[in-house]
Nucleic acid binder design. Structure first.
Lengths: 380, 380
DNA sequence: TTGTAAGCGTTATCAT
DNA sequence: ATGATAACGCTTACAA
């Protein structure tokens, strides 16, 4: 760091700081040096309006000489917009979001804007606080995975004319575009796969009931059971928070069920829950897939080398981010009429079969052995 | 979204947009309604200067009635600072950073500032571009893991009086504070552990030579070898990029060495390289730890359930972020004299032993079998 | 204790 | 094609 770290004090001085480092030149300095008006400089910077080649050149030289950088703060202020997009995610430690962030980032940078990343940590208070800050900063637009517990707050964006695109989750009460996953289909695929392998007691570990994805994934699970003629056993449906620690606890609860109720297969409905479940199973000495078949949700970097490699429903995370950002840009460019009905896109997930769900043979065994009790005497 | 999504056009209208939603009230509106001057309103907002309780109350009521939110853009502009801290990381998909981000975030929010997250993707051009944008936005301060390939650019922060704290990596040419890991110690611990288990041909997979962490981890590796009286075999030192795909390639290269050179143990010097290595070993059918012992760098959420669970050198990532942010705040509060020597903190990593490095017995076997060739006839 | 008014750096409107 | 100038919303001397 140079000697010019004095901060506020130094910056207040007009032309040259006492510590000797260059003060930031402004548009007037450039105009003076180039012998033109500030309006002309502004036109050169923004390529707005016509400026003679010769003047353009003079201005550019002056800018270079003064090491001039437009003050974005002044610019934003004047135009009443920040040139920033906010991406509000609900848990930065969830690998699901990292690839999604990239998708958003790539589009946003290409559009010449900047990305402000906000982590709500599934906390409605944090969410509310971010909404305030973002509105105060006249954010151009917002892409968010809502916690679902601060509706009123999120509506403030709408009141201030700030376009919002939801990702991952939906807020049914709010009319806004959304790029979501077809969660019902994903959960159906996962559950049906286990059922097809012969399992009859399939447990599900799922997140908070308030979140739409949890509801939808449970719905897909139930539909698959129904299609296979199985009555869902509510004891096999474990709900909790969507953290690793929640996955551990819910799994332990399922494992402690009596032998004739305990599931032979597990559908863990997101990646953190999957990690938690695998940890709990390992600690309990339950062999996967022989004693418990597992299908998870979300592909992430270590799924292929987890023990055993995980069968998962993979989401097109990058694409979710990309599509959401593109949709937001349409709003910013004024290409969306405000009275249009919101557009909700549902992307298809894909089942990737690996070892954690076992082979058909092992599954059939379990199925045959358990088919009776599941709907039979043990229950009644 | 409400009917007020008209964007630029709508916002230009002074008091009430044609679409009918509230225009944003400004400080003058509040002052008028409360029957005071704007200065008084400002004093109430910022709790600066003295205002009579009664007026305070009137102002607060007016703010509430008008749903007033101070325009941060104007505020930032006026004060020539953005109230934002930037965190520049080199790879958002690297789990190493997620916990670090939290550490920074927690401190920054507590300090009442906002966090701008920038992902350079290890690309010096992206880095340079972000530096420009951040200076243009009068960022208050920066915490960054430099790519190491855009020194000149990073120096611009210093010239503009913007304090910088480095994390993870060091830019030797630049005088700035840094919160780093004691990489030499970490790599030493990892390597020594393998040597103690009896291994004599320990390979290292490491990142780009331009990055200080790579150099330091290699240094720790070499020191451990030296302390055990082993001459490093340059063929066992694989360098490349720090991505999963780099880990795969470097591992394949080591595996293709002739049997009497091929390592019996591997030190993978960061988490992505570890994932790559594990994937390559699995694909090549090499059993861990029996045919290849592995010690990685960086603990992350799935290490305990990877196959087999990984022995790793764990970094205190949250603490790195937290300490860096606290240090930055000292600069912002003017508590650091600019002519002070930069403070470089080195945090200690910790070895967590799991199954991937095998038991002493298996190691000793290999050691005994290989002790001769390693320094013996095979080499000369 | 409160008010008045001068900026901050830029863009946009109007003349020329 | 270029220039003069008035905003933009807020903070902060300074005056009262």
């Amino acid at each position: 760091m140079s000697a010019c770290t004095a901060g506020a004090a130094a910056r207040r001085v007009p032309k040259r700081t006492p510590s000797g480092c260059d003060a930031m030149a402004n548009i007037r300095d450039v105009a003076r040096l180039a012998g033109v008006s500030t309006a002309t400089v502004s036109r050169v910077i923004n390529e707005s309006g016509f400026v003679a080649e010769e003047l353009k050149e003079r201005v550019r030289r002056a800018m270079a000489e003064l090491n001039y950088r437009p003050n974005n703060l002044a610019r934003s202020f004047r135009q009443n917009r920040s040139f920033m997009i906010a991406l509000m995610i609900s848990d930065i430690s969830n690998p699901f979001f990292t690839s999604l962030v990239r998708g958003v980032e790539d589009v946003v940078k290409e559009g010449g804007l900047n990305l402000l990343l906000c982590n709500t940590d599934e906390d409605p208070d944090k969410e509310r606080s971010y909404v305030e800050v973002l509105i105060g900063n006249r954010i151009d637009g917002v892409i968010m995975a809502p916690t679902g517990k601060a509706q009123e707050s999120v509506e403030a964006f709408g009141r201030h004319g700030i376009p919002v695109v939801f990702i991952d989750r939906h807020l049914p009460g709010i009319k806004a575009d959304a790029v979501l996953l077809d969660n019902v289909s994903g959960a159906y695929q996962a559950t049906a796969h286990l059922l097809r392998l012969g399992h009859r007691r399939v447990g599900i570990i799922t997140g908070l009931e308030t979140v739409s994805t949890s509801q939808e994934r449970e719905e897909g699970y139930r539909r698959a059971l129904a299609d296979f003629g199985i009555t869902p056993d509510e004891r096999l449906i474990a709900r909790g928070n969507s953290r690793i620690e929640g996955g551990i606890r819910q799994t332990q609860a399922l494992l402690s069920l009596p032998p004739d109720v305990r599931p032979t297969a597990l559908f863990t409905s997101n990646n953190l829950l999957t990690i938690g479940a695998m940890r709990a199973l390992r600690e309990a000495g339950v062999k996967v897939p022989h004693e418990m078949a597992v299908v998870g949700f979300d592909e992430f970097e270590s799924t292929p080398i987890i023990d055993p490699p995980l069968t998962v429903v993979a989401q097109p995370t990058y694409e979710i981010g990309m599509r959401a950002a593109k949709r937001l840009f349409k709003h910013l460019r004024g290409e969306v009429r405000s009275d249009n009905r919101p557009v909700v896109v549902r992307l298809k997930p894909q089942l990737i079969v690996r070892e954690s769900c076992g082979a058909r043979l092992a599954g059939l065994e379990a199925g045959v052995r358990d088919a009776g009790p599941a709907v039979g005497p043990g229950e009644r």
